[in-house]
């Protein structure tokens, strides 16, 4: 019962994808893998993978969602960095008094420009790394279950 539901896969991409010449040759291999396995639980995961690989409309939507999630987070963090650092030249230019304020003899502008950006950039990098890996893990979990 379950293997037969997987065997429907080849038909879908062929008519959904249309133009791809390679498509008709691919599905046959899938059937061989399944015959060998004959295990129920792997079928849904494989189905999702095939839909991804064939980029059926559902598979394409899945990857579109992942891309837009990653892009959204990337832009949020990049904009945060650009706002914090990128507004500094304007602030220094518009408010000269701010730059001449000094801490322990060192002008605050030198502390802000010479020290602060590096931990900030690294911190944002760590944040993006975490986010991206979490999204990718969730994506894999979704495909495999």
């Amino acid at each position: 019962m379950r293997p037969s539901s997987v065997e429907r896969v080849p038909g879908m991409p062929a008519h959904l994808k249309g133009g791809d010449i390679d498509a008709p040759t691919k599905p046959k291999r899938q059937r061989v893998v399944l015959g060998g396995g004959a295990q129920g639980p792997i079928a849904p995961s494989l189905r999702a993978r095939v839909e991804l690989a064939e980029q059926t409309s559902w598979g394409e939507m899945l990857i579109r969602d992942l891309i837009s999630a990653l892009l959204r987070w990337g832009l949020v963090l990049a904009v945060a960095a650009v706002l914090v650092l990128g507004l500094l030249p304007l602030v220094f230019w518009l408010v000269p008094g701010f730059a001449s304020f000094s801490v322990a003899g060192v002008p605050i502008a030198w502390l802000i420009l010479g020290l602060a950006p590096f931990p900030l950039l690294f911190g944002i990098g760590v944040a993006y790394d975490r986010l991206a890996e979490r999204h990718e893990r969730d994506f894999v979990d979704m495909i495999e279950n």
Binding site: G74, L77, A78, L85, L113, G114, P117, F118, L121, G125
Partner: peptide, 16 residues
């Protein structure tokens, strides 16, 4: 001092 900041920030853009 924007040189070192920019040289470093380039890797954040690259990474993201």
């Amino acid at each position: 001092m924007w040189y070192p900041i920019g040289f470093t920030a380039g890797y954040l853009a690259l990474m993201i």
